[in-house]
């Protein structure tokens, strides 16, 4: 006999459960299943082929390029945006004239939609009359096709992502800094601790829970945020800016190779899971939660 409360509990959980299953859990399971089948085409139904999709991925040159690009992209955006966020938070946490304005300015990129950001930066990067070339022109440097050159296209994407993300992470650091009791600083001042010593021995360790949170988000974003690639380069030139998620999008919705896209998605999920596990495992143990 199931008790009345149990029914009520399930009834209360149902709306959330339904949405979660429909849009999160089932698609995830379906993706895993799809990755083990061939892509259905016309009258040909999907056929179970085991890990064959994964095997063919190993020979896919574009996949390896996308993976390499994504690692470079992550390795550059994550530390850059997190360190920049911390520096900005420290800057706007001190008593400055016009502090609210500065905070807002730092946060603005976060509020803009990525499509708008991409369009703004598209203009910055335009050869000849874009912002970068105009500034470079002042120093006598010639024109440069930032997005058209495969050597500078990926760094350009990285710059946009850092600009967009740092303000968002700054908010978390700022909140954490403001939650720190001011008497810790005063106690350290009395003890003759230098600003740097206090930052290194007190501020930074106390910010670790925030850092962990921000890092996990930064890692996820590094594999998730590809809107600007769609708008600015479409993965080009010569796949120089193709990131993993963009490649999934292309495979799935331009070439309609859904099985392959599912396979790529599984790879991406496994990658993210491994990174998250690593972060919580390695960093989590060194984080002090109050």
């Amino acid at each position: 006999m199931i008790r009345r409360e149990t029914w009520q509990a399930w009834a209360l959980l149902l709306p959330a459960l339904l949405l979660l299953v429909a849009f999160t859990h089932w698609p995830a399971v379906a993706t895993l299943i799809d990755s083990l089948y061939t892509t259905p085409r016309g009258s040909r139904p999907p056929r179970f082929i085991g890990l064959e999709n994964f095997a063919s991925l190993l020979d896919d040159r574009v996949f390896w390029t996308a993976l390499r690009n994504n690692f470079i992209y992550a390795a550059a955006t994550i530390p850059a945006s997190v360190i920049l966020a911390l520096l900005m938070a420290l800057a706007v946490n001190t008593a400055l004239p016009g502090r609210p304005l500065l905070r807002m300015a730092y946060f603005t990129p976060t509020m803009l939609p990525m499509i708008a950001v991409a369009n703004i930066w598209l203009f910055f990067f335009t050869p000849d009359y874009g912002l970068f070339d105009q500034v470079a022109g002042l120093f006598g440097l010639g024109r440069h096709n930032w997005l058209g050159d495969s050597a500078t296209a990926l760094p350009a994407m990285i710059v946009v992502a850092v600009w967009k993300e740092a303000g968002f992470f700054m908010i978390f650091y700022l909140a954490a800094l403001q939650a720190m009791p001011p008497d810790l600083r005063e106690a350290a001042d009395l003890e003759g601790s230098s600003r740097w010593n206090f930052f290194r021995r007190v501020t930074l360790p106390l910010l670790m829970p925030t850092t962990l949170f921000v890092l996990v988000n930064a890692v996820i974003n590094a594999f998730r945020l590809v809107d600007h690639v769609v708008v600015m380069t479409r993965g080009g030139p010569d796949n120089a800016t193709t990131l993993l998620l963009y490649y999934i999008y292309e495979t799935g919705f331009r070439f309609w190779d859904t099985a392959m896209a599912a396979t790529l998605t599984v790879v991406l999920l496994v990658l993210l899971a491994a990174l998250a596990w690593l972060q919580f495992g390695v960093l989590g143990r060194r984080v002090h939660y109050r």
Partner: peptide, 9 residues
């Protein structure tokens, strides 16, 4: 200090 101001970590 009234709050002791000990470093929690």
């Amino acid at each position: 200090f009234q709050s002791y101001a000990l470093f929690p970590h």
